Simulated assay, not measured.
Amino acid sequence: MGDRNAMLGEALRLIRVFHDRKQVDLAEELGISQSHLSDIERGAKTPSQDLVAKYAEVFDLPVSSIWFFDEQLSSGTTPKAIDRARGVIADKVLDFLRIIERRQEKS
């Protein structure tokens, strides 16, 4: 994942995995195709605001906690240091979720 949506897509994937949900089942619940969800999780497509809201509802999360991982979030008025800090924090949260994912796979 090297493009602009990579961090958000990875966050959505890890949230799904953390909740032990299959991609096909979640896609059906969200009202989208599995291939579309796969594209979002890989960072190939950007989810709509409505889709992120549905995702937040399914997993009982604040919408803002999901948008936190959007690399395009910067408004241009946010100081660069804050943008960098947000990126570092988001990376650390994703690293933590990946550790949990690996532990779940082992058990």
Rank of each mutant, 00 (worst) to 15 (best):
M1N: 09
M1C: 14
G2Y: 02
G2R: 02
D3C: 04
R4F: 05
L8W: 05
G9T: 02
L12H: 00
L14N: 01
R16C: 10
V17E: 11
V17S: 07
F18E: 14
F18R: 08
D20L: 12
D20I: 09
D20W: 08
R21L: 05
R21K: 08
R21A: 09
R21D: 08
K22D: 15
K22H: 15
Q23S: 12
A27P: 10
L30S: 06
G31P: 04
S33P: 06
S33H: 00
L37V: 15
L37W: 10
S38C: 09
S38L: 01
D39A: 13
D39C: 11
E41R: 04
R42F: 01
A44S: 03
A44P: 00
A44N: 06
K45M: 06
T46E: 09
T46L: 15
P47D: 05
P47M: 01
S48W: 05
Q49L: 11
L51T: 04
A53H: 03
A53W: 01
K54F: 01
Y55D: 03
Y55P: 07
A56H: 03
V58M: 04
V58R: 02
F59M: 09
P62H: 07
S65E: 14
I66H: 05
W67D: 06
F69I: 03
D70M: 06
E71Y: 11
S74N: 14
G76V: 15
T77G: 15
T77F: 10
P79Q: 11
K80V: 15
A81F: 11
A81H: 13
I82G: 06
G87Q: 08
V88T: 12
I89M: 09
D91A: 14
K92H: 13
D95I: 02
D95S: 06
L97R: 14
R98I: 03
E105K: 10
K106H: 13
S107M: 03
S107F: 00
